[in-house]
Computed example of a mutant assay.
Amino acid sequence: MTQQPADGYDVVVIGGGAAGLSGALMLARARRSVAVIDAGTPRNAPAEGVHGLLGHDGVPPAELLERGRAEVGGYGGHLVSGQVESVTRQASASAPPGEVPGFVVTLADGRTVEARRLLVATGLVDELPQVPGLRERWGRDVVHCPYCHGWEVRDRAIGVLACGPMAVHQALLFRQWSADVTLFTHTLPSPAGQEAEQLAARGIPVVEGEVSGLEIVADRLAGVRLADGTVVGRQVVAVASRLVARAAFLAPLGLRPVEHPSGIGEHLPADATGRTDVPGLWVAGNVTELSAQVGGAAAAGAGAAAQINADLIAEETRRAVAAHRDRAPFSAATEARVSELVTGNARHGL
Rank of each mutant, 00 (worst) to 15 (best):
S92R: 12
P61T: 05
P42K: 03
R69G: 02
G68W: 00
P46I: 11
V87Q: 00
V50Q: 00
S86G: 08
H78P: 03
L65N: 01
Q90P: 00
G82S: 08
E71I: 13
R69F: 14
L64I: 06
G52W: 04
V80I: 14
G76K: 14
E71L: 15
L53H: 09
G52H: 01
L54H: 03
R89N: 06
V80H: 08
T88K: 02
A93E: 13
P97T: 04
T41K: 14
E66Y: 02
E99D: 14
G49E: 09
V87L: 01
S94C: 04
P60S: 10
L79K: 08
L54T: 03
G74Y: 13
R43N: 06
A47F: 08
G68S: 10
P97K: 01
E71G: 02
H78T: 10
G49N: 05
L53S: 00
G102K: 01
S92Q: 12
L79C: 06
A47H: 02
P101E: 05
A45N: 09
P96E: 03
T88A: 07
V100C: 11
S92Y: 04
V84A: 05
V59T: 13
E63T: 11
A45C: 04
L53I: 07
A45W: 12
N44Q: 10
G98N: 08
A95T: 05
G77Y: 03
E66H: 11
P97N: 02
A62D: 15
P60W: 03
S92E: 15
R43K: 11
L53K: 02
H56F: 11
Y75C: 12
A93N: 06
E85L: 12
Q90R: 14
A91K: 05
P61Y: 09
G73Q: 11
S86V: 03
E85C: 07
G73R: 13
E85N: 09
A70T: 11
T41A: 12
L79P: 00
E63I: 09
G49V: 05
L79S: 04
A47P: 04
L65R: 13
G76D: 11
P60T: 11
L54Y: 15
E71M: 10
G55C: 13
V80L: 12
P97S: 08
R69C: 07
L54S: 02
S94R: 15
L54W: 15
